[in-house]
């Protein structure tokens, strides 16, 4: 039997497009003070959320977000056939400890900040393939646990470089189902790892921009769609510089997305007022913007079809210290209000 759902080199088209039946997002204080404040389900006022460590707080963040999404789907947790999730911490402990108590079959993922699109892609494939009726796709990041793993202690007096981004404290979870009437996931374009030699871990936007551009170009070429088919092409966490570079690469490859190209890292904060340098980053960045703002906009009909392109910088503190460049990836998912 040959693969009948493939479209071009890297895209697949769903035969029975699964529905996003529910989504939930919980974020930290800073995110709650940004322009999307009213789109989150819950805003925390304490970075530890009553826990004894930031790692435990991140686990709680993910667990509570998953539970809330399942509750909004009006299903018991036992009906979930799979949870697909990941985070930024070494060995994905944020996720592993979050899912420990949920008693649902689990695949752990690591796609750095691309995890929301990665988990959503795989959840969609499982549902469309007839392997599951309900799948949870989730991810999280926490500013404090990421800082201590990737950078400096919180109280250390260092300066952030102008190209630095701010790790979002937030989690997003989506329940994908075979039964429902939209929003539908219709296409998935899986990215390749692209590395154009950027080594500065404080400039992840520039490192990830070519990966984002490559996946977007591939998606348009595979599907034959044009810019008019989309209301928004939204990248995960490229930030100001990364988005500008992506736009430049797209234009040099004859794709002008005009004002339809935006980035979750720019949407989540008031960049100037909150002094965010290039914008937000982290798995929770694209996850909280998708699970809150974007899906709400699609549901109320302000947007009919979007391309969600979460981007990930796949380095580690060790590879950075060993002076390696940053391999990057971007996965794209088409989300539509109704099937045409």
């Amino acid at each position: 039997m040959s693969a009948t759902k493939r479209l071009g080199a890297q895209t697949i088209k769903m035969q029975y497009p699964p529905t996003i039946i529910a989504s939930a997002t919980i974020v930290g204080e800073k995110e709650g003070k940004g322009p999307l404040e009213n789109t989150f389900d819950k805003v925390l006022d304490d970075a530890l959320w009553g826990e004894s460590s930031f790692e435990k707080a991140e686990s709680k963040l993910m667990r509570e977000t998953i539970m809330l999404a399942v509750e909004k789907a009006e299903q018991p947790m036992s009906n979930m056939h799979y949870i697909l999730a990941g985070d930024l911490l070494s060995q994905c402990i944020g996720t592993n400890f979050a899912v420990r108590e949920l008693e649902v079959p689990f695949f752990g993922l690591y796609g750095a900040c691309s995890t929301m699109a990665e988990s959503l892609s795989l959840a969609t494939i499982l549902v469309d393939g007839g392997f599951a009726d309900y799948v949870v796709a989730a991810t999280s990041s926490h500013f404090c646990s990421a800082e201590r793993q990737f950078r400096f202690p919180l109280a250390y007096g260092g300066q952030r470089t102008p190209t630095a981004q701010w790790t979002v404290t937030g989690a997003g979870a989506i329940v994908v189902s075979s039964n429902g009437n939209g929003p539908f996931i219709t296409h998935i374009t899986t990215g390749k790892i692209i590395d154009l030699g950027i080594k500065d871990a404080n400039n992840m936007g520039a490192a990830m921009a070519p990966a984002a551009a490559d996946t977007i170009l591939q998606h348009f070429s595979d599907t034959g769609k044009t810019v008019n088919d989309y209301d928004l092409v939204v990248t995960g966490d490229l930030g100001k510089l990364g988005l500008a570079l992506t736009d430049q690469i797209l234009k040099e490859n004859n794709l002008d997305l005009q004002d339809k190209l935006n980035d979750c890292g720019l949407l989540i904060y008031d960049i100037e007022a909150q002094d965010m340098h290039m914008g937000g980053s982290g798995c929770g960045c694209s996850a909280s913007v998708l699970c809150g703002h974007l899906l709400k906009e699609i549901k109320i009909g302000n947007m009919k079809r979007i391309l969600f392109v979460a981007t990930g910088a796949l380095m580690s503190p060790t590879s950075t210290q060993q002076n390696e460049s940053i391999p990057c990836i971007a996965h794209a998912v088409t989300i539509e209000k109704e099937l045409r």
Partner: peptide, 11 residues
């Protein structure tokens, strides 16, 4: 690409 980034990066 390095040159492209250098031109666009804020100082």
């Amino acid at each position: 690409y390095g040159k492209m980034v250098e031109r666009s990066a804020p100082k």
